[in-house]
Design a protein around this nucleic acid. Structure first.
Length: 289
DNA sequence: CTTGCTACCTGCGGGC
DNA sequence: TGCCCGCAGGTAGCAA
């Protein structure tokens, strides 16, 4: 479940179904799922045993579960295909089950990390000493996300202008603004009538403010309907899909009419992935750029 | 320091 | 039927 709205849907599920529970047993079934935990899977399991989870937190696409009274947290990233599922203990193992956690209460459910492509993972980290919001130390480079009340709009706009890059690259740069991925970048650019290759330095203050507003709007709209799910890979902790795919205006709409002007939408290969845009509403920047 | 490119994985659908 | 290719919502790590 990649981008901010989908990760927030998962965070809310963890808040409801996992917060306050004490771990009794951890099984690491694939070493790559804990590769960001340098001490390895056995250490990860041993250190988690007996600890109690506090309310799940999130920044951008990262989420973490603080362990009560330890100054440490279990940090998670879902990568491209990761899922955190709260399943009945007797449910059959998923094909790509990587990590299982059992609890000492009698709720009868366990937490599972399932990940087909193993780009995601869990790890255990200390809380950053200078952090006021319990941030694990290893994600200090991740910028606040646009739904964070402490996100600084002015600072973002200034930093954006100073970048020597193009606008979509900047939106995907998690050290500048976090939580935006390929879908919501294309959606926000379409709403802003901006081409993905527009140099950041050419954006006026009102244009960058508008872009940021559209990033927020599209993420909030997606969140309200449970996120974007094209298939069963992107689900909440109960395995349910979101509905925002029906509301996408750009992403995945190659050859379909632009919802604003009717021109067929285009797809361009871009950074080993794709960009979807309207060739009429989102004109490429002048000259070579 | 910044910016951009590639590797890291598995699976799916389309063309041959 | 099967093989090969391109493609998939992400990020770390490295080169320039």
């Amino acid at each position: 479940m990649p981008e901010l709205p989908e990760v927030e849907v998962v965070r809310r599920g963890l808040e409801r179904w996992v917060a306050g529970r004490t771990v009794t047993e951890v099984e690491v079934l694939h070493p790559r799922a804990v590769r960001r935990h340098p001490a390895g899977g056995a250490d990860f399991a041993a250190r988690l045993k007996g600890q109690r989870f506090e309310v799940a937190r999130r920044r951008g696409k990262y989420l973490w579960l603080p362990l009560a009274d330890t100054g440490t947290s279990v940090l998670g990233h879902l990568g491209m295909s990761g899922q955190l599922l709260v399943q009945p203990e007797d449910a059959p193992d998923e094909k790509h089950l990587r990590i299982r956690m059992r609890f000492e209460d009698s709720a009868g459910t366990e937490l599972r990390f399932v990940d087909q492509r193993t780009f995601g993972g869990l790890s255990l980290h200390d809380t950053a000493p200078d952090s006021t919001d319990g941030l694990p130390d290893v994600i200090g480079h991740i910028a606040r996300d646009p739904l964070d009340p402490a996100f600084d709009d002015d600072a973002f706009q200034s930093a954006l202008r100073l970048r020597r890059t193009t606008v979509k690259r900047a939106l995907l740069d998690q050290s500048l603004i976090s939580g935006v991925g390929n879908i919501y970048a294309d959606e926000a650019l379409w709403r802003s009538r901006l081409h993905y290759d527009r140099p950041t330095g050419t954006l006026t203050r009102p244009r960058s403010a508008e872009l940021l507003g559209h990033v927020r709007d599209v993420m909030n709209a997606a969140l309200a309907v449970g996120g974007t799910s094209f298939d069963s890979l992107y689900v909440n902790v109960n395995g349910e899909s979101g509905y925002f795919d029906r509301s996408l205006d750009a992403y995945g709409r190659e050859d379909e009419p632009c919802r604003r002007c009717g021109t067929p939408m285009r797809r361009r290969a871009w950074m080993n992935r794709s960009s979807y845009f309207c060739p009429r509403c989102q004109r490429p920047p002048r000259a070579t750029a």
